[in-house]
Design a protein around this nucleic acid. Structure first.
Length: 205
DNA sequence: CGGCTGATGATCT
DNA sequence: GATCATCAGCCGG
């Protein structure tokens, strides 16, 4: 039977609309749309949780300088940095500074909008709330792999950032999840109460 | 719900 | 060889 569809009006964000500062970008991205155009379907979702990784931050992949893996973090703001971790998961970051400065925003939570039935296949689950809650799940649902590393999310391409479909609610701030270095820094941002925000309940309210 | 554990492989020391 | 920006599955409350 026909899958349910929702009309979604999204315009691509131009780089000039992105704040030139990674923490501001991490806040700005809450409520905006992430889109992955596949040949057969458009996958999209509303960004509801982010974390900033900045210069001088020992938890950042760029802390020890540019390497083959992290080079995308040093691209101008709005480029994808995709890496593989724990032998299982891809993570999607968005570079957040001028070219040459290694900073980025990790996307940790997405509220699915379009292509939900495909996301369910990618994730091997029918559960809506578990589809894209958490960075690894988000990448799997959106079919993000290393082949997208370095892509300009503000250019015309398959993976891009779009305008908000509805305004962001109240934004919560907390410590980042799953790190040991610089664990006290308040660099995690999320839409309060949104069910697609990851982490324990205490970090979702 | 929260806490724990094993899986799994790229990356850098 | 250690580390790792995680997750699914299992258990107890």
């Amino acid at each position: 039977m026909m899958p349910a569809r929702r009309k979604v009006r999204i315009r691509r964000l131009h780089r000039s609309e992105l704040p030139i500062e990674t923490i501001k970008l991490a806040r700005f991205l809450i409520g905006k749309t992430l889109v992955h155009d596949l040949p057969h379907v458009r996958l999209s979702g509303r960004i509801v949780e982010t974390e900033a990784y900045i210069v001088g931050d020992a938890a950042s992949h760029a802390f020890r300088g540019l390497t083959p893996r992290n080079k995308s973090l040093f691209l101008d703001r709005g480029h994808a940095y995709v890496y593989f971790i724990y032998g299982n998961h891809y993570m999607l970051n968005i570079s957040g500074q001028r070219e040459g400065i290694g900073e980025g925003v990790l996307l940790r939570g997405l509220e699915p909008l379009e292509g939900i039935e495909w996301m369910q296949r990618h994730r091997h689950t029918k559960s809506l709330t578990e589809l894209s809650r958490g960075p690894g799940r988000l990448a799997a649902a959106m079919r993000i792999t290393r082949s997208l590393d370095g892509l300009d999310l503000c250019a015309k391409g398959p993976l891009w950032l779009g305008t908000a479909t509805k305004p962001a609610g109240k934004i919560g701030v907390s410590v980042r999840i799953g790190i040991t270095q610089e664990a006290h820094r308040l660099l995690r941002f999320y839409e309060r109460g949104n069910p697609f925000v990851s982490g324990p309940k205490s970090l979702r309210v």
